[in-house]
């Protein structure tokens, strides 16, 4: 079945059962519906989004699985990081609704046509979407929470080891 698709699109073979395909974001729905109708990659298993901040791009991988659940096809789409929006896949796969909700909350991607993008995991969250690279979780934590007294943190390990050795030696000399 994979040869049939190779004729239409240039598909990279990543592993014995893993294939990758790079497409433009505006042809997403059309290609995915073509694939799901003609080939046996009928199920959307996952929408994985990676934030390449240095290339100023989000790369979304729509991972499709065959009817026999033996091969996976990763369809990659790249969109800009600022006003990022994509067409929804609700017409093709009902399970996309939840995945789009998750990505909308975590990355701020707007899925045109999916009007049930209410909050998924965070409640009254007014910071920037947390999984974007520019959101620094350690800074957020230091600003909102205080740590318990006596919990020194991320000190250089070597300095600490040297100090303890000196202390032990001094104790031994003292005795």
């Amino acid at each position: 079945m994979i040869e049939f698709l190779k004729k239409h699109y240039e598909i990279v073979e990543k592993g014995s059962r893993l294939y990758k395909l790079q497409i433009e974001s505006d042809k997403l729905v059309e290609i995915l519906s073509y694939i799901s109708i003609n080939s046996n990659f009928i199920t959307l298993s996952q929408i994985a989004c990676t934030d390449w901040i240095e290339d100023e791009v989000f790369s979304l991988n729509y991972i499709l699985t065959t009817k026999e659940r033996d091969k996976n096809l990763m369809v990659e789409v790249r969109i800009g990081r600022v006003h990022c929006s994509l067409p929804t896949l609700l017409t093709l796969y009902p399970q996309a609704q939840v995945m789009e909700r998750d990505l909308h909350e975590m990355y701020g991607i707007n899925f045109r046509g999916n009007d049930t993008l209410y909050d998924f995991a965070l409640e009254n969250w007014n910071e920037i979407p947390p999984l974007r690279r520019e959101f620094d979780t350690l800074a957020y934590v230091n600003e909102h929470f205080d740590f318990r007294i006596g919990r020194e943190d991320n000190k250089d390990v070597k300095v600490e080891v040297k100090r303890r050795k000196a202390q032990a030696k001094e104790l031994k000399d003292g005795k």
């Binding site: 995991a121 910071e127 979780t137 350690l138 929470f145 740590f147 318990r148």
Partner: peptide
């Protein structure tokens, strides 16, 4: 805070 000391969504104390 345990293992999630640097998580934005969990409380520490």
């Amino acid at each position: 805070g345990g293992m999630y000391w640097d998580s934005y969504n969990t409380i520490k104390k």
